[in-house]
């Protein structure tokens, strides 16, 4: 039986060296998902220039899978158009990370939800 914490190299890489982590003070859109009582909260901040995502940053309270999927999501959408970003799903993020432990796919892989919420906030 696999442990919940058996992660791929890509997950470990994004967990230990998260990309685009931090805050955008004058963000154009902010999306927060999750609940501290469940152990995962993701906050995504966007800075847009016309149709382009100029900057994206995240803050995450959660396990390695939650942090890695947040980080991976930002790399998928930074510099992209809003149209492209709107198509990004949690499944895409998980696929980009290679694989997540099955039990973590639903609970910790919320980065695209936070992104879509931030886009909705624009």
């Amino acid at each position: 039986m696999e442990s919940n914490c058996d992660y791929t190299k890509a997950v470990f890489d994004h967990f230990q060296n998260p990309r685009n982590m931090g805050e955008i003070e004058d963000a154009d859109g902010v999306g927060t998902v999750g609940n501290p009582s469940c152990g995962d909260v993701l906050k995504v901040m966007l800075k847009v220039d016309g149709d382009k995502i100029e900057d994206v940053k995240f803050q995450t309270f959660g396990c390695a899978a939650a942090i890695a999927s947040s980080s991976m999501m930002t790399t998928l959408v930074k510099g992209k158009s809003l149209g492209e970003a709107k198509k990004v799903t949690n499944k895409d993020v998980a696929a980009a990370l290679g694989q997540l432990p099955p039990i973590k796919v639903h609970c910790s892989n919320l980065a695209a939800d936070a992104l879509q919420k931030a886009i909705g906030d624009l």
Binding site: F15, G62, C63
Partner: peptide, 14 residues
Amino acid sequence: YGIEGESLMLMLDK
């Protein structure tokens, strides 16, 4: 406060 234990455990494991 404000952080999650599995992340911390894995970082220490490394």
